[in-house]
Amino acid sequence: MKLLFKCFLICLVLPVISTNAQEINSTKGYDTHIGVMVYMLEDLKSEIVSSTRGLNQFETDFQFDKQANSIGAIILHLAAVEVAYQKTSFGEYMNNEYEKEEQELLEMSIDLDTTKELLKEKPIKYYLSIYKKVRKNTLRELKNRNDNWWTKNSHWAWFHVMEHQANHYGQIKLIKARFPK
């Protein structure tokens, strides 16, 4: 009976689940290719935010060894790298979207190795609010662009932003798995 049930799952249910899981749409309000990237970036952001929901201060700052990063530092680093690509894609005026303190923090957070010890004692909501503000600015700017601009100028950059965030999402999951029990 167990074998029959496993066969049922593998043959009938799994293909339906995996087909749906691989569906990527274009977000409405954007040109088609930009909308696809927005869909993927937002899906990944949702996973990152969800994975950090409810972290306490110890968990936000936890490093499982001296070379490891904290989740708080990683979130700010993700925002910092996205801002760097905003400037590359949209122009230096993107600095004007951030308060002076945010600009300094984001510039410092590009290099995780030098900032991981400094980025502590802030609640996870602090880091997430900056991350979400950065993404809001990205989405606003992408909405003002078209697919012609995208394919000639920036699709490679935003693919890298997504790839970078996916790598650090894996790191966040690893850190959480190493929390002391």
Rank of each mutant, 00 (worst) to 15 (best):
Q22S: 12
E104Y: 03
I10E: 11
M1T: 10
N137F: 13
I48Q: 09
Y85V: 07
T52K: 01
A166W: 11
G72Q: 05
Y131Q: 01
I74K: 00
W158R: 15
F62M: 00
K143T: 03
E101L: 01
R53M: 06
I17H: 06
Y131G: 01
E82V: 01
Q57V: 08
A177D: 12
L41I: 15
R135Q: 13
I130P: 00
D31T: 04
N56C: 15
N146F: 13
N144L: 14
T60P: 03
E97V: 05
A177R: 14
L76P: 02
T19Y: 14
A68C: 06
Y98I: 05
Y93A: 07
E42S: 15
V83T: 04
F5D: 12
T88P: 03
I17F: 11
T52I: 07
G91H: 11
A157K: 13
I130L: 09
W150F: 15
Q57E: 14
I124K: 02
E121F: 10
L12K: 13
A21D: 09
W156Y: 12
K136I: 08
D61N: 12
L9V: 06
M162V: 07
Y126A: 10
S26D: 01
M94L: 04
Q67R: 10
A166R: 04
K136W: 06
S26Y: 01
L55C: 09
Q86P: 02
D61H: 04
Y85P: 05
K6S: 03
Q165Y: 06
T114H: 08
W149L: 09
C11V: 14
H77S: 00
N153G: 08
H164C: 06
E104T: 11
L105Y: 00
S51E: 12
A68G: 08
L119N: 11
V49K: 13
M37I: 05
K87C: 12
H33L: 14
T88M: 10
K116H: 11
V36N: 03
E97G: 05
I124G: 03
F179G: 12
A157E: 12
M1Q: 06
F159E: 07
R135P: 13
L118V: 07
S50A: 11
V38T: 03
A79R: 08
L139H: 07
G72D: 00
N56H: 11
L119M: 10
Q165S: 13
T27K: 08
T151C: 09
N137Q: 15
